[in-house]
Nucleic acid binder design. Structure first.
Lengths: 152, 152
DNA sequence: TTGACTTATTTTACATATAAAATTAATTTC
DNA sequence: GAAATTAATTTTATATGTAAAATAAGTCAA
């Protein structure tokens, strides 16, 4: 008694397994290469990327939203970035509860080098996709992403 | 001075951002729903799924390979599953270094319930994808996945 | 102004992941 | 068969993530 619903479910499971595989494989390669060549993990890279986009800095809350992780997580992450000399935290004058995180000059420099490694490794990973394949995948993922934001 | 390579790189970055977004959003929804309804995280669910496929059990190394995580990680994970009463570990007769992990009856039962939740939530997540969209996405990801395994 | 929220952040307890060292048992080599 | 090597697993130190409680500062209503 198999029907169209079963085949749809099979496709959904397969889709998700591929997303998991692709994510794990590419994330792992990026992480290993960046750690080895620049001593910056993907997590730290993502945080540096946000701070790079906002030269005046971001509050802890804003950074936490941008990275889609909890406030508590960002507390520890920025503390580690400070210890690495890549970022700094300054207390707001207006609101003494609030802290602004921003890149240090060294953070900016290290991020730029990490970005080059990131792009190189990502390019290598996506080599197997032809231009039309990439465009096609981009389209489906874009639609899925838009849909996810709507369906809540 | 922009050329075809720049646009390719832009597409690669966009593709990766979508993979990250889709992964984080769906993984988060699965994790929250399964924890709330069955008290089983996605990590534990994945481990239970492997043990479910192999009723005779898997060695710690085999499980670690199947899950694509380190041996040390699986040590702790199986210990937590044991504490939950979902799995058990028995020492091999032939090789006293080796341990076989397998599901308990309760583990089997709880996994089946978690699978239903998993499928329901995943279906809801992928609702925005039409059948052709899903097939298309599946095709691109399959090609990328195959490619990743070759390029090493 | 004081008492009740709300907001920004950190802390705590825990789960999940890695890499590298340690442990313990099996295997090979001489 | 003792010594060296290999193999299976665990332990340790650390990074990364969550949820929930704690802290501390701002806001607002009475």
């Amino acid at each position: 008694m198999s029907d169209a619903g079963d085949s749809r479910r099979q496709d959904e499971r397969r889709f998700w397994l591929y997303v998991l595989d692709v994510h794990a494989e590419i994330y792992g390669r990026l992480n290993r290469a960046m750690k080895a060549e620049t001593d910056i993990s993907v997590t730290k890279f993502d945080a540096l990327a946000q701070l790079y986009r906002y030269p005046d800095g971001l509050t802890m809350s804003a950074l936490s939203e941008a990275l889609r992780v909890t406030n508590g997580n960002v507390s520890g992450l920025v503390a580690r970035l400070e210890k690495d000399g890549l970022a700094e935290r300054t207390m707001s004058e207006q609101d003494r509860r609030s802290f602004t995180a921003r890149l240090t000059p060294e953070g900016r420099e290290r991020f730029e080098r990490a970005l080059a490694v990131h792009d190189r490794v990502l390019s290598h990973c996506l080599d197997p996709l032809t231009e039309p394949d990439l465009a096609e995948a981009l389209g489906s993922l874009r639609r899925l992403n838009a849909g996810l934001k709507i369906t809540g």
